[in-house]
Design a protein around this nucleic acid. Sequence first.
DNA 1: CTCCTTAATAGTAATTGTTCCTAATAAATA
DNA 2: TATTTATTAGGAACAATTACTATTAAGGAG
Lengths: 126, 126
Amino acid sequence: MTVKRNTIQRQLVLDAVCELASHPTAEQVYEYVVDKHPSISKATVYRNLSMLSEYGELLNIGSFHGSIHYDHNCSYHCHFICENCKQVFDISTQLPNVFDDLREMHGFEIKGHSLSFNGLCPNCST
Amino acid sequence: MTVKRNTIQRQLVLDAVCELASHPTAEQVYEYVVDKHPSISKATVYRNLSMLSEYGELLNIGSFHGSIHYDHNCSYHCHFICENCKQVFDISTQLPNVFDDLREMHGFEIKGHSLSFNGLCPNCST
DNA sequence: CTCCTTAATAGTAATTGTTCCTAATAAATA
DNA sequence: TATTTATTAGGAACAATTACTATTAAGGAG
């Protein structure tokens, strides 16, 4: 059995996503981390972002405008992506349990889902 | 005022997405169209896919596994993406009108949304 | 129908996001 | 403290997409 090791690089990547709290991309995480740990490489950031997502410590919320965004909040919520400023907003709303119904009705083994809206945020719509 | 011109290339791209009906990527559309019109270039396929999406004649349903998928069905439905076979399935289900509520409650001008599930399809889960 | 404007095209180069590769490093266990 | 091997840095490779430029052709005006 392979052991998951704790490295400062992995911790820095995880901390960055939490501290940025802006649904950052790998590039944005790299920019944030390289300040504190200049020798880190981009490959390390990419690798840790996907490993942390697999472990359930981060959430890959999908690819918007060409790059994958990550979220430190792994509990269920939706997102709103502004087409103008490209910002990703959290939308905390409860959708009824159609998800459970879907699971049972269609025979799909659902491991995750992504609900996102696009349009213009209050700032950009004026 | 710029005039949108009708070209055979644009029509072929639109037809391809309809005829394939498998949520194709730009690459898959190109492979399909180049048979009928060998001189078409990939840039033309990419350009027309994004223009047709802007015009509302196609739907960009998001980027899965590294490339954007398009749908000829522009009416509301969800998708299920199998993590194993990478197939995109249509899920026709009605979510209650939380979308209208969101629109009014948050001040976001919602132009579209995307709800997709990932996991294993019935074929792959056994 | 013919001419003219310019949107759209073909072909290719460039860019961007991401993954792969390899030798060196450093966690974790014995 | 020594050993194993997961992880790293750095750069090359790759794949999806966009940008660029000369050429072509759609469609409105005359």
